[in-house]
Amino acid sequence: MGGAGMSAALLVQALRQPASVAALDGAGWNALIAAARAERLIGTLALRIGDGPVPEPVRRIWADARREAERETRQALWEADRAAAALADWDGPVVLLKGTAYAAAGLTAGEGRFIGDLDILVPRGAMADVEQRLIAAGWEWVKQDPYDDAYYRQWMHELPPLIHRDRDRMIDVHHTILPLTARQKPDADAMLAAAVPITGKLYILSPEDRVCHAAAHMLADGDLAGGLRNLWDIHCLLADADLRKLDARARRHGIAPHVRQAQRLADALYGTGKARLTLWDRIVLRRLLARDGWGGESRKLLRSAFYIRSHWLRMPPLMLARHLLTKWRKGHRPG
């Protein structure tokens, strides 16, 4: 089957122009479905394409994907409800983030989305109180390693992950959106102050802060694994944002270059394709499209470079060297 980027390019084309799948042959359908599964976009793709001119086996795959996405949405919303119940007596809002937030607010970005952990944002000063209330309600620590626990508490933007002992579902409790060691310092208090109520205890970030968070998560923190889904989120979220307010908000959070790049990339892949791309934009696009014709990861050197870059973004050089050496000694190896 074709070279690097083939299946990812088919996925992007199908999301941007669903009617384009009518021209696919059997190999094309296999590549498209493989990439959609690998990027966790198959539920979204199934809803975008629908049951139009697609082969009967694909209809069954679409039906399974839609059912799985609906199941994950129900489960995610139940977890949000349980977290809200556990924190009912705590005097503060529970701000939902990422997939659960999109689903709870009925946003386009949540349609067909597969949802993993529950992510919430609370004030930094409330972290200890929130943690104890969640533990009392059945959540337990995942990180048993003292180094990992201490690293999270001192340097990260969230508590060490917690998992519920009965439901086996994880919650990540954030007090800001980037690690404390990152060069950018988003104003988490401003995000909390501008949060919009969904129902009762649960809130969601403002439309502009949702884009800022998604862009920061994708471009100022991670290694771009799963980047096509993250960029689809951004493409959908931009439709609800006031672009003038977004620029001001991005500057306030210190991530204006990342938000502007996210806008260009979203336009390049899912929009009009008229954005003027920089050389760095084109390198990022190569990383985003790094899948072979079977949906597997390709361009190993490029992926490794972005993995190293993700750590470089999170911490100063000496701290990075100590951290990577410690993790290496403990047997961790990059994927």
Rank of each mutant, 00 (worst) to 15 (best):
G138Q: 14
A65M: 03
G52D: 12
V54G: 03
R67P: 06
P146A: 04
R66E: 10
D149A: 15
I49C: 09
I115M: 01
D51R: 11
V58F: 03
I49R: 00
A101Y: 01
M156E: 15
A88V: 13
A69G: 10
R165H: 12
G138R: 00
A86T: 05
D148M: 11
V95G: 00
R133Q: 09
D119V: 01
A136G: 13
T73M: 08
E70L: 14
Y147R: 06
P57H: 10
P123W: 02
A85L: 14
D168E: 15
D148H: 12
R60V: 12
L77A: 03
L118E: 02
L159Q: 00
D117Y: 04
A83L: 08
D64F: 11
G106Q: 06
L47H: 13
A69H: 00
P161N: 01
A80M: 06
I120N: 00
W62G: 09
A103G: 09
L134Q: 01
G52P: 01
D149T: 13
L121V: 05
R67E: 13
G106H: 12
G99E: 05
E56Y: 11
L45A: 01
M170G: 03
D168L: 12
H164V: 07
D145L: 10
D91E: 14
I115W: 06
A104V: 08
A80G: 13
L107N: 01
V142F: 05
Q154S: 15
A101G: 04
Q144Y: 06
R60Y: 13
G110M: 14
R66L: 07
A65E: 06
E158V: 07
D148V: 00
T108M: 10
G92N: 05
R169F: 05
D168S: 12
R66A: 01
V142W: 05
A80Y: 01
E72F: 07
L121C: 05
P53H: 15
L107S: 09
G116M: 03
A109C: 10
R165T: 15
Q75F: 15
K143A: 15
V142P: 01
D129H: 10
W90T: 03
